[in-house]
Simulated assay, not measured.
Amino acid sequence: MSEFPDDLRYAATHEWVRVEEDGSVTIGISDHAQELLGDIVFIELPEEGAVVSAKDEMSVVESVKAASDIYAPVSGEIIAVNEDLTDAPETMNSSPYSDGWLCRILPSNPDELEELLDADTYAGMCE
C-alpha cells in the first residue's frame, strides 16, 4: 500500500514536492511511482545549476522493468542534487520521501505550487 504524506504536494506525473523553510523545494518520486517501477538500478541526476521549466523532463530513472522520465513539477534553478543516489539508486525504493530525494529547486514562479495536487487528490488518482 502506497504512502501519501499530507505535508507534500504531488504532480500528476508522480513527483512529490516539499516546500522548505528557505523557499526552495525538495523533489522526489512518490512511493506509488517507485512501486510501479520496481527495483531502481540507475538514476540520471539532473545538473546542478540548470534552469528547468515546469513539466519539462529533468532526469531519468531506470528500473528492472523500464526507464521513466522525471519531470520538473515547478520552474526554477536546480540548486542541489542527491549525489548519494549515484552509488545507491535503490534508496529511491527504500526511502522515497526522505533519503531518496532527487533534487532541490529554487522556484522562479512559486504560484506553480498551487497547481500541484494535495495528498488526498493524488491518492485518489493513483487508485
Rank of each mutant, 00 (worst) to 15 (best):
R9G: 06
Q34A: 05
S98K: 07
L8V: 11
P46H: 08
W16N: 11
A54V: 02
D6V: 03
K65R: 12
N82G: 06
S95A: 15
E15L: 08
M58H: 04
H32K: 00
A80L: 05
S53C: 00
P73L: 10
S75V: 08
L102S: 12
G76P: 08
D120I: 12
N93F: 07
L116K: 00
C103N: 03
L116E: 04
V81S: 04
E112I: 06
V61G: 01
G76V: 06
V64A: 13
E90P: 04
V61E: 01
S63L: 10
I27L: 13
M125N: 00
H14W: 09
M92L: 15
P5F: 06
S30I: 08
D118C: 03
A88R: 10
V60E: 08
V81K: 09
E3M: 06
A11W: 05
L85P: 04
S94F: 03
D118M: 06
V25P: 10
N109P: 00
V25L: 13
E47V: 03
P73N: 08
G124A: 06
I29S: 07
I27T: 01
H32S: 05
S30V: 08
W16Q: 05
V19P: 08
I105M: 04
A123H: 09
I40S: 05
I78D: 14
V74D: 05
K65Q: 02
E115T: 14
R18K: 15
E83Q: 14
S108K: 02
D99Y: 01
V52L: 07
D118T: 11
C103K: 09
S75L: 03
A12F: 01
E3P: 00
P46Q: 13
D84Y: 02
G23N: 14
S53H: 09
V51P: 10
A88I: 00
A80C: 10
S24C: 10
I70A: 07
H14E: 13
K65Y: 04
P96E: 04
S98Y: 12
E77Q: 15
V41A: 01
L8W: 05
L45Q: 07
S68F: 07
S94C: 00
